[in-house]
Simulated scan of single mutants.
Amino acid sequence: MQQDVLTGTAAPEPPPAAPSARRRQIAEGVRDSSSAGLGIFPLGIALGLLIIQAGLPWWLAPALSLAAFAGSLELLLVGMMAAVTPLAAVALTVLVVNFRHVFYAFSFPLHLVKHPAAKAYAVYAMIDEAYAVNASLPEAERSAPRLLAMQIACEAYWVGGGLVGVALGAALPAPVKGLEFALCALFTVLTLDAFRSRSELPSVLLAGTSAVVALVLTPGLAMLTALLLFVALLLARHTLTARRPAVAQEAADA
């Protein structure tokens, strides 16, 4: 129950969404996922093909997609499994590649999802594509059914693409080259969409600077260095941005 500010009495909770409204929100969530799905499904096909070409069992495609559900990480894990990479190196790679999801949680609308099981799934399915699609939506149009429907549809694209890739890999007589570029292309499109919708030019410049510095100073560990440097720059920018209103207020009071 919520308390009415004017009368001091307990105000009733807002009624839950009607079934027709919930169905409309679910349909909108599935429609929201279509743009990301154009990249997720082919990328899933690439994952399935890479698994077959690496000589790994076919069931690894759906198993990885359901256990991890992180496209960039899964593509890296396929190569690491094929090369029998030490477990410590795998653990460090998982930490570095997926550490960005910690910062996603700061602005991802998990507060809209109330049911514990649904919220746990929303956290599990908080992938780059879901974050980018949600960031382009106005605040007033976001809802739990729309968010969850979009995330479920994205996972369906990914798992389905992996199974199609496995079938194609078993049928093709020769390996297909260049599939790993699909991941780079997908991230490029998502970055451009997010930039156009939010005009985050400073973040884009900080990311580019981090990549250039990492490639120059530590070419062998460019990804790790770029991620750590980008995080440090984002934290510094957040600190400066948070202090600016306080400084302005002190100046006005003086």
Rank of each mutant, 00 (worst) to 15 (best):
V216C: 14
A251E: 14
V216D: 07
A36R: 00
T239K: 05
S107C: 04
G39F: 11
P219W: 10
A88C: 02
M223L: 15
G8T: 07
L66P: 00
A118W: 12
A27L: 11
P202N: 05
A21R: 10
L6N: 12
L205V: 13
L49S: 06
M126I: 01
V212L: 15
M80I: 05
P175D: 10
R198W: 06
E141V: 00
A232L: 15
V84I: 03
T225S: 15
A185G: 11
P14M: 14
E250W: 05
L77G: 02
I52P: 01
L112F: 05
L137H: 13
L228A: 15
Y157D: 11
L227P: 01
H238N: 14
L60A: 13
V164Q: 05
P42M: 10
A91Y: 02
L92W: 04
A91P: 00
V84D: 11
C154Q: 05
S65G: 15
M126K: 05
N134L: 04
V78W: 01
G79P: 01
A232G: 12
L217T: 13
R198S: 13
R23H: 02
V94C: 03
A67M: 10
A125N: 08
G48A: 06
A117R: 15
T239V: 00
F103W: 10
A135V: 01
A207G: 15
H101N: 07
L227K: 01
T9R: 14
A167Q: 10
V133M: 11
A156Q: 03
Y121T: 04
A232W: 06
A236P: 00
R244K: 13
I45E: 04
N98M: 04
A194N: 13
I152W: 10
A27F: 02
L205N: 07
L137V: 09
L201R: 08
V78E: 07
I52H: 12
L186F: 03
A118T: 08
V113D: 13
L76Y: 02
K114Y: 00
L163I: 15
V113A: 08
I40C: 04
L148I: 11
R243T: 03
S199F: 06
R244Q: 13
A46L: 07
M223H: 09
K177V: 07
F99V: 05
A46Y: 10
T188W: 02
L179P: 06
R237H: 12
M1P: 14
A11E: 13
F99K: 03
L206V: 06
I52R: 13
L6I: 09
V96W: 01
L43H: 01
L77H: 02
W158L: 05
L217S: 12
A242T: 09
S72C: 06
T191K: 02
L75N: 04
P116S: 07
V213C: 09
Q3E: 12
P14R: 14
L77T: 04
L148P: 07
L234T: 15
L6S: 13
A207Y: 08
R24E: 15
A194T: 08
G169R: 00
S199A: 12
L179Y: 05
L76R: 03
A118Q: 14
L233N: 10
C154A: 11
M80G: 06
F195D: 01
F195E: 01
A185N: 08
E200M: 08
T239E: 05
V231E: 11
A63K: 03
G48F: 01
T191H: 00
V176A: 07
E155C: 06
T188C: 14
P175G: 09
G79A: 02
A83Q: 12
A88N: 05
A118D: 14
P42E: 09
H111C: 06
